[in-house]
Structure formats: C-alpha cells, structure tokens
Design a protein around this nucleic acid. Structure first.
Lengths: 111, 111
DNA sequence: CGGCTTCATAACCTTGTGGTTATCTATAAC
DNA sequence: GTTATAGATAACCACAAGGTTATGAAGCCG
C-alpha cells in the first residue's frame, strides 16, 4: 500500500462522522436519506463524507431504484491494519502469535 | 478509546511526513535538527509536525543538553489497531485465531 | 407528460492545515 | 556575560475541509 492510499484512508478515518458512517454500514447498506436522518447534519454534508469514503475505497455505491445504497468496502481497513502492524513490536513484546498473524495479514495483499 | 483521541491519532497518521517521522523514531530517538535534515522542509515545519504527533500521544520529548530528543510512543497505535480490529470480520472470514488475538489486544487497554 | 422523491452539485463561508520567513528563548561553552 | 547553537513561536500565506443553502438531475409513478 502506497503513501497516497494511506493518506486517503487515514484521512477518511480522521473524522468521527465518517467513522460513524462506517459503523452504520457495517450493520447494513444504507441510503443517503437514512444516513442524513442518523446524523444531525444536512444531506449535502453526508454526500460529501460519502465521497471522501468512496475515494478512499472504503465505500462503494449502487443504485437501487431511486435510492443509492452505500456499501462498506473494508479492504483498505485491512491494509491500514497491516501498516500499523509494523509497529506492533513497540507496543507489545510478548505476544508470540502476533507475528505470524500479522504476517498472514500482510502477505495477502500488502506490497 | 474515545472519538476525540481517534480524531487525533488518525489525523496524525493522515500525513506522510508524520508517518515517515514515526518510521524514523521507530529506529532511534532523534532531535529536531536531524529530522529537518531528513525531510526537505524547514525546521519550523518539522516542529509543527512533532507537535501534532505529541498531541496525539504518539511522541514524547525530553531535553538532552541543548537538544530535544523525540521518542516514539506507540501505545495509541495499539488503540487504533484495536479500533480497526472491530472490522476484521468484513475483510477476513477464515482466520480463527484472529478473534482471540485481537481480543487480547482489545482487553489490555481499550475501553 | 407532470410531479414527487432521492441525491448530487454549485456557490459560498469559516476554520484548519501545511508550508514559509523572521525572530525569540534556552542551554552550553568559553 | 557573550556568544553560538537548538528549537520554539509568531506572523503570514495558499489552499483544503467541513459545514451551510439553493438548485439541478435522475429515476419512479400516476
């Protein structure tokens, strides 16, 4: 995963509204109107957040009649976790199995 | 870990210069002058980045004579990993041991 | 077609961010 | 005390971010 992608992913996660949107989408795909109802915020503001999440690869969208359902795409979260895993030795010394586990994460699609 | 803290940590990680600073500090404690030499950027710019990292709890500093050494504090990275771990089921289905391992991470100091 | 619903886009505003240069402060050395 | 060095702080600038209101476009329905 390159720096540009990490910029986008961490940048997307650096906003609590977007994190809350992701939490919601983890439960179920949701349209813009329902998301707007969940957060005391205007509809265009939600659309902007969704665009940020989409550009980071964290959300995909598809029309469903007149609605557009947002769907969680968690792959970049895996990549971000892989990046953070490089620092595991600095916050944890004694988890023997951590290395193999994070290795299994990293080997799948981290370059 | 609360939203304010996550804002700070993910916000700090959303800049490639700051990520590079963390990578450097993972090798060895470094003073501001040496960091400035590593990145083609002015010294005040580096000081600003260090302040952001410090407020996120990712860096501590202590005087060493006339210098101030920056030191990596990786604990917030652990917390951020714990947050991301909540989404592991969406990017991975078949790692049985992931659950117990991430549980061990979360139980230590995630609220 | 006409009208309703859903969402995107445009224009705008305020604040934050990342950088600069210039200057101030603190420690060390003499 | 003077001077040199390390780094912080101030003032400034350009632009991105997060919000708003107003409006436009796309798809269903009668």
């Amino acid at each position: 995963m390159n720096d540009d992608q990490l910029d986008l992913v961490f940048g997307a996660l650096a906003d609590r509204t977007r994190r809350a949107i992701l939490a919601r989408l983890a439960e179920t795909d949701t349209n813009v109107g329902d998301l707007t109802a969940l957060f005391t915020m205007s509809q265009p503001a939600i659309s902007k957040h969704l665009k940020v999440l989409e550009q980071a690869g964290l959300v995909s969208r598809n029309r469903q009649g007149t609605m557009r359902l947002s769907h969680l795409e968690a792959e970049p979260l895996k990549d971000a976790t892989g990046w953070l895993a490089d620092y595991r030795t600095y916050w944890s010394e004694s988890y023997d199995r951590l290395d193999e586990l994070f290795a299994s994460i990293n080997n799948t699609d981290k370059e």
